[in-house]
């Protein structure tokens, strides 16, 4: 499994706002355990999709100079269960970006309906602090995993 919880970006305004899509599918294996006979997308994964949208927005605002780590979720509210067949649209707004990290406010909609909202704080860390090998960073993820979809959507980085 690849840890991508967004399928593509549909809007990307550098340093301000990004919108992405996640199509929820019954082929996702975890949905059959969560819950048997009543598949619901786990809120933790909705949060992850929100964090990926907001984290890439923050990372790009510094030209991916920093490693962006999800540090804290001060607020998360779910308004209704998200089920297979739903298309989530995450809208992340960068509310603060500075040398040490940043903060985003993210909402998730299905159509016009608000299904979840969150505030997410990110910290900038070094590769050493993060304990990960050199060269693995968010830019790679964007280039390898998401650049294709960004290009496909006709959105320039």
């Amino acid at each position: 499994m690849r840890w991508f919880w967004i399928d593509k970006f549909i809007e990307f305004e550098s340093g301000k706002q990004a919108r992405s899509i996640k199509n929820v599918s019954l082929s996702e294996e975890h949905l059959h355990d969560h819950f048997p006979g009543f598949p619901v997308m786990p809120c933790s994964l909705i949060m992850e999709g929100m964090a990926q949208t907001g984290g890439i927005l923050l990372g790009e605002s510094h030209k991916f100079k920093y490693l962006v780590f999800l540090a804290k979720v001060p607020k998360f509210k779910s308004h209704r269960p998200v089920r297979p067949g739903d298309q989530l649209i995450y809208t992340a707004t960068l509310t603060d970006a500075r040398e040490e990290g940043g903060m985003t406010s993210v909402v998730a909609h299905c159509g016009d309906e608000l299904v979840a909202e969150a505030e997410i704080v990110f910290a900038h860390v070094t590769e050493e602090d993060a304990g990960i090998p050199k060269g693995v960073n968010q830019k790679n993820v964007v280039e390898v995993g998401l650049a294709g979809v960004l290009a496909e959507s006709g959105i320039n980085e």
């Binding site: 540090a71 509310t95 603060d96 903060m103 704080v121």
Partner: peptide
């Protein structure tokens, strides 16, 4: 430690 960053953001706002 991470709360300090959050507090700084909120105080600024």
């Amino acid at each position: 430690s991470i709360d300090f960053l959050d507090i700084v953001f909120r105080l600024e706002k």
